[in-house]
Simulated assay, not measured.
Amino acid sequence: MFEYTLYEDLAAEIEIPRVGITSRPVFKSDRLRAVLFGFAEGEEMSEHTAAVPAIAQVLEGEATMTFEEEERKLHAGAWVLMDAHLPHSVVANQPLKLMLYLLRAPKPSGD
Results as ranks from 00 to 15, higher is better:
residue 1 M to I: 11
residue 2 F to N: 10
residue 2 F to L: 10
residue 2 F to P: 07
residue 3 E to S: 03
residue 4 Y to N: 09
residue 6 L to V: 15
residue 7 Y to E: 07
residue 8 E to D: 14
residue 9 D to P: 02
residue 10 L to H: 03
residue 12 A to G: 11
residue 13 E to G: 06
residue 14 I to M: 02
residue 15 E to R: 11
residue 15 E to Q: 14
residue 16 I to Y: 02
residue 16 I to G: 04
residue 16 I to V: 15
residue 17 P to L: 12
residue 18 R to V: 05
residue 18 R to L: 12
residue 19 V to Y: 12
residue 19 V to N: 13
residue 20 G to I: 00
residue 20 G to F: 03
residue 21 I to T: 15
residue 22 T to H: 09
residue 24 R to N: 14
residue 24 R to I: 15
residue 25 P to V: 12
residue 26 V to L: 10
residue 27 F to N: 08
residue 29 S to H: 01
residue 30 D to V: 02
residue 32 L to T: 13
residue 32 L to R: 09
residue 33 R to A: 15
residue 34 A to H: 02
residue 35 V to Q: 04
residue 36 L to N: 05
residue 39 F to W: 01
residue 41 E to G: 14
residue 43 E to V: 11
residue 44 E to M: 10
residue 44 E to C: 05
residue 45 M to P: 00
residue 46 S to M: 09
residue 46 S to W: 02
residue 47 E to Y: 02
residue 47 E to A: 08
residue 50 A to Y: 01
residue 51 A to D: 15
residue 51 A to G: 07
residue 52 V to R: 01
residue 53 P to S: 07
residue 57 Q to V: 14
residue 57 Q to Y: 08
residue 59 L to N: 04
residue 59 L to T: 14
residue 61 G to W: 06
residue 61 G to L: 09
residue 62 E to P: 03
residue 62 E to A: 15
residue 62 E to M: 14
residue 64 T to M: 07
residue 65 M to Y: 12
residue 66 T to R: 11
residue 66 T to P: 03
residue 66 T to G: 04
residue 68 E to D: 01
residue 69 E to C: 00
residue 69 E to Q: 09
residue 72 R to H: 09
residue 73 K to T: 15
residue 73 K to D: 11
residue 74 L to E: 14
residue 75 H to M: 09
residue 75 H to S: 02
residue 75 H to W: 03
residue 77 G to L: 05
residue 78 A to K: 03
residue 79 W to C: 15
residue 83 D to R: 05
residue 87 P to L: 00
residue 87 P to R: 00
residue 87 P to S: 06
residue 88 H to S: 00
residue 88 H to Y: 06
residue 89 S to A: 06
residue 91 V to A: 07
residue 91 V to G: 04
residue 93 N to P: 01
residue 93 N to G: 08
residue 94 Q to E: 15
residue 96 L to Y: 05
residue 98 L to W: 12
residue 101 Y to R: 00
residue 101 Y to P: 02
residue 101 Y to A: 12
residue 102 L to N: 09
residue 103 L to D: 02
residue 104 R to A: 11
residue 104 R to C: 12
residue 105 A to T: 14
residue 105 A to L: 04
residue 105 A to E: 10
residue 110 G to N: 10
residue 111 D to N: 13
residue 111 D to A: 14
